[in-house]
Amino acid sequence: NQASVVANQLIPISTALTLVMMRSEVVTPVGIPAEDIPRLVSMTVNRAVPLGTTLMPDMVKGYA
Rank of each mutant, 00 (worst) to 15 (best):
N1P: 15
N1T: 15
N1F: 14
Q2E: 15
Q2P: 15
Q2V: 13
A3K: 07
A3F: 09
A3E: 13
A3V: 06
A3R: 06
A3D: 06
A3W: 06
S4L: 02
S4Q: 01
S4T: 04
S4A: 03
V5Y: 02
V5M: 02
V5H: 00
V5W: 02
V5K: 01
V6M: 04
V6Q: 01
V6F: 00
V6S: 01
V6Y: 00
V6P: 01
V6R: 02
A7P: 01
A7G: 03
A7D: 01
A7K: 00
N8A: 12
N8D: 11
N8V: 11
N8R: 09
Q9E: 12
Q9D: 08
Q9A: 13
Q9H: 11
Q9V: 13
L10K: 11
L10E: 15
L10I: 12
L10T: 10
P12H: 08
P12Q: 10
P12F: 04
I13P: 12
I13H: 12
S14F: 11
S14N: 15
S14H: 14
S14M: 14
T15P: 02
T15N: 04
T15Y: 08
A16F: 08
A16K: 14
A16S: 11
A16D: 06
L17T: 00
L17S: 00
L17R: 00
L17F: 02
L17C: 03
L17V: 02
T18M: 06
T18N: 05
T18F: 03
L19P: 09
L19G: 12
L19K: 14
L19Q: 10
L19I: 08
L19F: 15
V20Y: 15
V20P: 12
V20E: 13
M21H: 10
M21W: 03
M21L: 05
M21I: 03
M21K: 00
M21P: 01
M22V: 07
M22A: 01
M22P: 00
M22Y: 02
M22T: 00
M22D: 02
R23K: 14
R23E: 04
R23D: 05
R23C: 05
R23F: 04
R23P: 03
S24N: 05
S24W: 08
S24F: 05
S24V: 12
E25T: 09
E25M: 09
E25F: 06
E25N: 08
E25A: 11
V26S: 10
V27I: 07
V27R: 09
V27H: 03
V27Q: 05
T28G: 06
T28D: 15
T28S: 11
T28N: 15
P29T: 07
V30P: 10
V30A: 10
V30I: 14
V30D: 12
G31T: 00
G31W: 03
G31H: 01
I32G: 02
I32E: 02
P33N: 08
P33L: 11
P33G: 05
P33K: 09
A34N: 07
A34F: 06
A34W: 06
A34G: 08
A34S: 13
E35S: 09
E35T: 13
E35I: 10
E35K: 07
E35H: 12
D36Y: 10
D36R: 08
D36A: 11
I37A: 07
I37E: 00
I37Y: 02
I37M: 13
P38Q: 09
P38M: 12
P38I: 13
P38D: 08
P38W: 09
P38F: 08
R39G: 09
R39F: 12
R39C: 13
R39A: 08
R39S: 12
R39V: 12
L40I: 10
L40S: 00
L40Q: 00
V41A: 05
V41K: 04
V41M: 06
V41D: 03
S42K: 12
S42A: 13
S42Y: 11
S42T: 13
S42C: 15
M43A: 06
M43G: 02
T44L: 13
T44C: 08
T44R: 13
T44M: 12
T44S: 11
V45M: 06
V45P: 01
V45D: 01
V45H: 00
N46Y: 09
R47F: 08
A48V: 15
A48R: 14
A48K: 10
A48N: 14
V49C: 06
V49Y: 02
V49T: 04
L51R: 08
L51Y: 13
L51M: 15
L51T: 14
G52R: 04
T54Q: 02
T54C: 05
T54Y: 03
T54H: 02
T54L: 04
T54P: 07
T54R: 02
L55D: 01
L55R: 01
L55K: 01
M56S: 07
M56C: 10
M56W: 05
P57N: 04
P57A: 15
P57H: 07
D58I: 09
D58F: 08
D58C: 13
D58A: 09
D58V: 08
M59I: 06
M59K: 01
M59E: 01
M59Q: 05
M59W: 12
M59P: 01
V60Q: 00
V60L: 09
K61A: 13
K61C: 15
K61Y: 10
K61W: 09
K61H: 10
G62I: 04
G62W: 07
G62E: 09
Y63W: 14
Y63H: 05
Y63M: 05
Y63F: 14
A64T: 15
A64N: 14
A64Q: 15
A64M: 13
A64S: 10
